[in-house]
Amino acid sequence: MKKILIILLLAGLGFYIATTYTGIGFGEPHFKHGVKDTYLKQTVQSLHVANTVTAIVVNFRGFDTLGEVTVLFLAVTALGSILYKKRHEVGVRSVLFSSSSIVTAGSKLLFPAIILLGAYVFIHGHLTPGGGFQGGVIIATGFLLMLLAYRNYSVSHIILSIVESIAGITFAGIGLLGLIYGETFLQNFLPVGVLNNVFSGGIIPIIYIAVGFKVAAELTGVIYTILHEKGESNG
């Protein structure tokens, strides 16, 4: 009974949304005077950044990104607070036993490459697809591989939280520097360089590198916390 009710409700809602969105139309320009044209123009002209999405995420709407980083930070904090236990079991393992020697040897060689891939993604965030979040996620995944493969691989909690804090402070601090040297928060105060060079885009690559470190540290923290969560019921 309840299921039928829910299906009816959702069918109604779906019809409602579907008529709305099909009315909007797919693949055609919907509006005339949007901000999108300004973004596309200014990205190349005044920021000298190739990737418009990066420019929007970090500069035009950089405030959103600051909020987003904060959301992740809070998620880590809330996760720790929800799963908090007194840490008397210090020597607890992330996994119960090591993987076979093929996986361990393989991940040993792959780990630096994954980290390098992550670094590549966030250093080139303003030139190619990708950026701080993606690079950070990739680095965290590299740590996940090591944590999974080895029985006694551990990541220092203190270093993680220091990296996280410093990266966060860099982001917010660059914003405040913009307020001091420029006129507004997060304003670009560095020379913008030449389009499609690594050193271009002013503060954008710096912020993305900070975001990359921060996201990497945060997600590694998430993985580490959740891997060490041994349910009392399940051994």
Partner: peptide, 10 residues
């Protein structure tokens, strides 16, 4: 070529 055999072995 490097990762696929490892995953199938695992």
């Amino acid at each position: 070529a490097y990762s696929n055999p490892i995953s199938s072995h695992a």
